[in-house]
Design a protein around this nucleic acid. Structure first.
Lengths: 357, 357
DNA sequence: ATCGTTTCCGGGAACGTTTGCGTGATTCTT
DNA sequence: AAGAATCACGCAAACGTTCCCGGAAACGAT
């Protein structure tokens, strides 16, 4: 292959058509094995030859062909990511964290979106496997109840790390937020504001996070001797993908005989949608209905009203999950001990959760 | 390699350890060449053999190894993306569009972030080239003035498509929004609201979009006989990455002797930051200062006040750029005719741009 | 019977890399 | 000085594909 030094940008030599080990071998009159070994400083190669090869490789800016390496050692050095959507504050921040670690460790990241559909999730996993990814970073769709595909893969020793929306029945690495405490704190804040009639608008009941957040919600009610009313609990089984479903739930809550004074919302997308719907209905926040909810949006302090939110350290969660996954991938022995990392959420109190007189 | 049918999810057979052409050849007692040809329906293979091979491949869910294919025909079937940040509404939407097209056309996408730094941009391009991407989708960083690396690559026939922040001096495919018209319309809206003293807060002067938007801004002033005041023009050379820079610019504008009545903001990140800063200063929007700006955030209608914005069709821009890039990659002959696709922006008038009495 | 044509299939090189094994040359033993 | 040990390097296979080439078998034409 031809040498083509393209240009030098601030001292870095830019190449396009790249040199192979063969090119170096030919140029130096040695064998490819010698070049290969010299480049990794093998003791089998004489000091002089080693220097020659390394200097030449440096000069022509040799970079090993990652594709050839992949074929050789049957590792693609890529990881597959399964999330519901990238255009979602939580997930775009998590992906940011994923990329930052993966990039540094020499992996690249293939992102797929489920749009909360189980069928698309299955297809995506298929696609990622056919791409020969070395491992999977998964956040389940709202629709998913059947996790058998992951179970089989995991049993076969295929590295999988779940984050956020984890599979309860698979024993592997997991990285989650402390959903119970996040929900508990937010609910307690609403109670401290003076509310007793508190509803809970949340995502699909298939998701473990939904239950954890509900449990936190209920525990706060219990602690303060407030009875939980089942009619104050609204699930959006499509995880917020279907607007009408959310609108119906919100309208139901607002139209009840003894309608709630406050709503605690258990999902990012739902929180934003809920604000939008309530404002569209002309109901005053927080005058007529108070609000607190999970979201990772950075701009909710600019909202009317500023939103009280539970915020997850999405970036760190993404980073941590990726570290665990790559450690599993590169582990020489099958991993037996699995960790579940739990990180704290952050409660940010703003106007939307206050009681106005 | 061992056959391992993992499980069946709704009729789809899940595999982990995958079959190779060699496995099929061995199982059927034919050669690998025969299997390869049979699978692509070559006329050189007898009908009976063809059927046998295809049925068997179907049965074991054979999928060609993409890595081997890449090595063979020297194409990685991946495209590199260079953007400033993924956690940015415009770019996350654009990436969504990029992924949607790339996925369907069998490419995967490697995303890199410049964080508005030219050095990181250079390193990223290097990295993507060493990954042997088949083409590049680039939106320049705010700091970039030297585009020679792209120029060289392009001259060597390497496929590059620019979107949004394009390189003026490189003749290749480009996909952009109609920045002039977007800025013109927004400015004219402010004028129609009754403002004459209109400032322009915008991004780095290195970027072409900055000039186009300024030109639109100025053209609107000219049309309505309003003199352009140079002191009303504020650049943030770091594209909004440095908070202090924005804060200083905004404070400067507000502290002027004859301070502007309205600000037109020429960048996504700047618009949000600007609102935040002005609110923090306790200045009323739109009472004391009116605002209109470019942004792709979906939630600015929930802001206090709801924001008047120019919105770009980011998803479509991402899709179109990807289509053009893959068409270039897969073109048999060197492409000579380059298109510059310009798509219209959308002006959404809300409260922030109104004149209150 | 000979030649040409068609049909159908296998051998093997190539893509870029790593690595086990083999080997000639040098140095070290005693 | 002869054998052993060490050093420095090359050969070739392998990863999964594709594809050029070559060739056997069958058939038709003369």
């Amino acid at each position: 292959m031809l040498l083509t030094v393209l240009c030098s940008i601030r001292g870095t030599t830019i190449m396009f058509e790249s040199y192979t080990i063969k090119d170096i071998a030919k140029a130096l009159g040695v064998s490819t094995s010698t070049v290969s070994r010299a480049l990794k400083g093998s003791y089998e190669i004489g000091a002089e030859t080693k220097r020659l090869v390394q200097e030449y490789a440096e000069k022509v800016n040799y970079r090993p062909n990652p594709i050839a390496l992949s074929l050789k050692d049957q590792k693609s050095h890529s990881i597959g990511v399964v999330v519901c959507e990238v255009a979602n504050d939580y997930f775009s921040q998590a992906i940011n964290g994923i990329e930052s670690i993966a990039y540094n460790l020499g992996y690249h990241v293939i992102i797929t979106q489920t749009h909360e559909s189980f069928d698309r999730e299955t297809v995506n996993v298929q696609h990622l496997l056919s791409r020969h990814v070395d491992g999977l970073l998964v956040s389940l769709s709202a629709q998913t109840t059947d996790t058998s595909q992951y179970k089989y893969l995991h049993e076969k020793g295929f590295p999988i790390v779940f984050f956020d929306r984890v599979a309860a029945d698979i024993d592997t690495h997991k990285v989650i937020a402390n959903n119970f405490k996040g929900a508990f704190d937010a609910t307690e804040l609403l109670i401290a504001s003076g509310f007793k009639k508190i509803a809970h608008l949340t995502s699909s009941s298939n998701l473990l996070i939904t239950h954890e957040r509900f449990n936190g919600f209920k525990a706060a009610l219990d602690k303060h001797g407030i009875e939980f009313k089942p009619e104050y609990l609204k699930h959006c089984q499509h995880g917020g993908m279907i607007y009408d479903e959310i609108e119906l739930a919100v309208k139901d809550l607002l139209a009840m005989d003894t309608s709630p004074e406050a709503i605690f919302i258990g999902s990012d997308r739902l929180t934003i949608s809920c604000v939008s719907i309530i404002k569209k209905l002309g109901v005053k926040i927080p005058g007529e209905i108070a609000l607190a909810g999970f979201t990772n949006s950075d701009v909710v302090d600019l909202f009317d009203p500023p939103l009280t939110v539970v915020r997850q350290p999405a970036f760190q969660i993404g980073q941590r999950a990726t570290e665990l996954l790559i450690k599993t991938i590169e582990s020489k022995w099958p991993v037996e001990e699995y960790t579940t990392d739990m990180v704290d959420t952050e409660l940010i109190a703003r106007l939307s959760s206050q009681k106005l007189n």
